[in-house]
Amino acid sequence: MPMKTSDFVVTTYSLTKTYQLGEMDVEVLKGIALNVTKGEFVVICGPSGSGKTTLLNIISGIDRPTSGKILVLGQDLAVQDEDFLSDFRCSRVGFVFQSYNLVSTLTVAENVAFPMEWIRKPEAEIETRVIELLETVGLQHRENHFPAQLSGGEQQRVAFARALANDPELILADEPTGNLDTKNGQKIRQMLQILKAKGKTVIVATHDPEIMQLADQTACLEDGRLTSQSE
């Protein structure tokens, strides 16, 4: 049975992105067409500079496409204003960076609580959720430490906990194991497995072959073009 647009969590059509570098235009994404259904685990692969991060940034609403269409969770992100995109990122999308990007002035617990506090969830609910998430990532004993006091692996686990705080419908992760050693990388893979088992829609940009094995769909980018797509 053919799928309707509303069945897709992410739909892109002829998506392009061009950056200006001095007087030169650099086309980073060239006519990307990608469909991601609910509960799907999608891996975006490709060499460095192929446009993986740019695609994730556009899907999360951090960046805007130069042309083409993008619908995420039913919203045309290309036409929305900054306030809408902020709310959208806070409540409906979880984002994990390769370089963790925790707020250095907030403690581990405060970093995890931040997206919930920002949408004014009840305080008791926030406190329960923070404990639950820190237990999930195994960092309950580090709740009052600051990011600079944690190892890279620990910081990435906090970043995952933060991304899951508002129980988002879509989780995006940009090379989540790229900066980690084997042991910490394994922990992150386990977390991705849990998310997949829970039926979350996950899009991961990665080179990690073990994460690729989790994929329901793999989209490979090369020089800004989608060169292969397998289900």
Binding site: D83, S86, D87, C90, F95, P115
Partner: peptide
Amino acid sequence: VMGTKPKA
């Protein structure tokens, strides 16, 4: 990125 609006 985490959802803080520009005015915030």
